[in-house]
Amino acid sequence: MMSEITAAEQTALDKALLDALNPLASAMRARATGLPEERTWDANPIEVTLSILTTWKMVDAEVKRLTAIAAKTAGSYGASYEQLGAAWGITRQGARKKWPDAIDRSSPAEAEASLIELCGGSAELSRDPSSGGWRWAGKGADGTRDEADSTSYYATKEEAAAHAGAFLKEHAADRRQGLADQ
């Protein structure tokens, strides 16, 4: 799954990163020296390049934070450590070490199917083994049956429960009673 970028894409990426870095580096350098931003580069070349290095360190920390968020988001949708590792070009074990909280290790009780009853109807929540996402299927108090469509998988059990609850509320035997049950 590791993708390579073309030389043209690399050049465009370098330019975009440098264009994004320059205002931050200028502002940081101005704060550190007390000089106006337009004069912050009129200094010893070592000091100037070290300020750029310091700015890259801050960008690196932000990229790591955003990367961890992306890994956790992928994990919440059912991605495995093997898939995370493949996307990052590392092993499954490396991905587990890099992002230890990316995959939800819910207790078995949280991962099991469960039944919710609301507004006179009921819905079953279950985890789809192929996607790792959650689904629901229910019967409203008015007899209407429905379920999450075949392409809908929810990241959490709570999200699937919310969708099932909305269905059950909509199909209460007496809509006024369903509204009163809120």
Rank of each mutant, 00 (worst) to 15 (best):
G165V: 13
S152A: 15
M28A: 08
A164H: 06
N22K: 13
K157G: 10
E110G: 09
V63E: 00
P45Q: 05
L18R: 15
D42Y: 04
L118F: 04
D42M: 03
K57G: 04
A148S: 15
E62M: 10
S150T: 14
S126D: 01
A162D: 09
A61S: 11
H171W: 07
A86Y: 06
A74P: 01
T6E: 08
D174R: 02
E117F: 02
I52D: 00
Y81I: 09
W41L: 09
R31K: 07
E147S: 15
Q10A: 15
L35T: 00
A111P: 00
G94Y: 11
Q83D: 06
G133A: 13
A8F: 03
D181C: 03
E112D: 05
A32T: 02
S131K: 13
D42G: 01
K169H: 08
D104P: 05
E38Q: 07
L21T: 11
F167T: 08
Y154W: 12
A102I: 07
T33E: 05
L17M: 15
G121I: 05
R31T: 00
A86K: 15
G75V: 08
D104A: 14
S122I: 01
T91G: 15
E4R: 08
E124Q: 13
R96G: 04
A25Q: 14
Q93E: 10
A7V: 12
R176K: 04
T33L: 11
D19W: 02
A160T: 14
A95Y: 03
L168Y: 10
A32E: 03
R176D: 06
D60Q: 11
A12P: 00
L66W: 05
L115H: 07
K157S: 13
G178D: 01
S76P: 02
T156D: 04
T54H: 03
L18D: 09
E82P: 03
P36C: 03
W99R: 10
A137L: 09
S107I: 02
A123V: 08
L118W: 04
L115E: 08
Y154P: 11
R39H: 09
S152N: 13
